[in-house]
Design a protein around this nucleic acid. Structure first.
Length: 285
DNA sequence: CCCCAGGGGATTT
DNA sequence: AAATCCCATGGG
């Protein structure tokens, strides 16, 4: 068991961070969050400025939760109007965790046209069946499977992980990542718009999934994923001219380019704060 | 039971 | 380029 004390000038809210839907392998039980991240089975809780955890060292925890990113500076940079200002006041301490590209890519392929519990189920089944076992603080957990492990799974068995019509997309991504193990390094090394195009070469990855992976795994904080909630929120607060119910490609581009201009280089943080403050989690609660 | 959720791809206009 | 349908699953 390890504990670290958070700096008073660097807010962090573990509950908001893990419950806002950005990562799919966390569950809260009896006051503790437990999950698997980057091959570590981690159990962690927060009491005010104290973080207590087991399953990883302090360096990993700081890195995964981006505790060294200057959050007040980020929030100050996006705080440009009353709507985002309210979201910041409500969700201060929410941080974007640093996910692994491969797991994040597959997770968001599995997230198309579906809800968060279903994504968790799919990712969990793939890990449980094909991921490396990890002895951790809550029994045997499983790492997310490496590309080769998934590439060797038959379509029928992948289908049985409840992937549905996404099965073929995951299978192709696994084959590609097995043959091109440096794919993520190459995406990380090129400019944002090019990286976005590169991710959309994957079958099953469109604008929304690409923006999520760019934001959550590659640290492209200007990425602004647009789902129906964000579309609704942006339509109400910023772009009242939005028409129709569906987000057409042209409309998607209009929203994300507006956000990049309006919020600046950390537009992705604005997206998370708006989603967290006014999206489905809050309305349900 | 039906409806909603609600992303990407294929097809058609 | 825009509109329409379909895909498999989970939640209300």
């Amino acid at each position: 068991m390890t504990a670290i004390t958070l700096r008073p000038d660097q807010p962090f809210d573990l509950d908001l961070t893990l419950s806002c839907g950005q990562a799919f392998r966390w569950e809260k039980a009896e006051g503790w969050w437990q999950g698997v991240a980057c091959g570590r089975a981690l159990r962690i809780r927060q009491d005010a400025d104290r973080l207590t955890f087991e399953g990883a060292d302090a360096g990993f925890v700081r890195d995964y939760f981006r505790l060294d990113q200057d959050l007040p500076a980020v929030l100050a940079s996006i705080d440009r109007d009353p709507a985002i200002g309210a979201a910041i006041r409500e969700c201060r301490g929410l941080r974007l965790v640093k996910q692994q590209p491969w797991e994040c890519l597959v997770s968001y392929i599995c997230a198309t046209n579906t809800n968060i519990p279903a994504v968790k189920r799919r990712v969990g089944l793939m890990a449980e069946r094909y991921g490396e076992p990890i002895d951790g603080p809550f029994g045997t957990a499983h790492a997310f499977p490496e590309p080769q492990a998934l590439a060797e799974v038959t379509c029928a068995d992948l289908w049985d992980c409840k992937l549905g019509y996404r099965t073929e997309s995951v299978r192709r991504a696994a084959a590609f990542a097995t043959e091109n193990p440096d794919w993520a390094e190459r995406v990380a090394a090129i400019p944002f718009e090019e990286a976005r195009e590169a991710l959309m070469e994957f079958r099953g990855v469109g604008p929304k999934a690409a923006d999520c992976v760019l934001l959550f795994a590659f640290g492209f904080f200007e990425a602004f994923p647009v789902d129906v909630w964000i579309r609704r929120i942006v339509g109400e607060a910023y772009l009242p001219g939005l028409t129709g119910k569906n987000c057409t490609p042209a409309e998607y581009d209009r929203i994300r380019r507006f956000a990049r201009e309006h919020f600046g280089e950390y537009a992705g943080y604005a997206q998370e704060y708006l989603y967290c403050a006014r999206g489905p989690a809050r309305r349900a609660a």
